[in-house]
């Protein structure tokens, strides 16, 4: 099934659910489905039970951080210049608000098919970062969602055991975010122009 077909099926089966097909420039035919976060859990159950898809295996769950972006596009506008209608080019700047995203790669072991790519997005990157956990549907998401919570700061509501996975308890930041600033390290590559280098040159 193509992503468009899946989209229309989901939208038909779950009233009020909006699905967007996100295109993929690299691999044709592997567009992903961005499901709105309110209906994500229902949509996941639907995909797993769908007799034609039977997506019983959630292989990979990845977090992605999209910063605020400004895109400028050139648009043609008709303007009245000195009473004459003229076509002119104008640059419009639009701001795409940043958000966090969890990407699920779903396969079917039963049917040996896949992947269907599901994306669930948060509202923004700062305070509204809740999305529903899909661990009740696929338990393979359990550790991976914990990892995303840890490294990206997405809060998965309904997750059975949402704790940090890799960083230690008490760590406050989210190191995989694009704007993360690591603390200064003291055992990185040595700069030969620094003190150690002078010592090495002397001895």
């Amino acid at each position: 099934m193509t992503p468009e077909q899946i989209r229309s099926e989901i939208e038909a089966a779950i009233p009020g659910c909006s699905v967007e097909v996100a295109p993929n420039g690299a691999v044709p035919g592997q567009a992903s489905l961005a499901v709105d976060r309110l209906h994500a859990l229902e949509a996941a159950w639907f995909l797993r039970r769908h007799p034609g898809l039977l997506l019983d295996f959630c292989s990979n769950v990845a977090g992605v951080d999209w910063l605020d972006r400004e895109i400028s596009e050139k648009v043609k506008v008709r303007k009245l210049v000195d009473g004459v209608e003229q076509e002119a080019e104008e640059t419009r700047k639009s701001k795409i608000p940043g958000r966090l995203e969890a990407v699920y790669h779903l396969f079917s072991i039963e049917k040996k098919q896949g992947p269907v790519i599901l994306r669930v997005r948060t509202e923004n990157r700062s305070d509204r970062v809740e999305i529903p956990s899909l661990t009740p549907v696929w338990r393979s998401a359990e550790f991976q969602e914990r990892e995303i919570f840890d490294l990206y700061g997405i809060v998965f509501t309904g997750h059975p055991d949402l704790r940090r996975l890799l960083m230690w308890e008490g760590f406050t930041d989210h190191p995989m975010r694009k704007d993360y600033v690591p603390p200064p390290e003291d055992d990185g590559p040595q700069d030969p122009r620094g003190a150690v280098g002078k010592e090495a040159a002397a001895g």
């Binding site: 040595q190 030969p192 150690v196 280098g197 010592e199 090495a200 040159a201 001895g203």
Partner: peptide, 10 residues
């Protein structure tokens, strides 16, 4: 035995 300067090869 020199963890810093001894491993910085010029």
């Amino acid at each position: 035995d020199d963890r810093f300067a001894g491993l910085l090869w010029g």
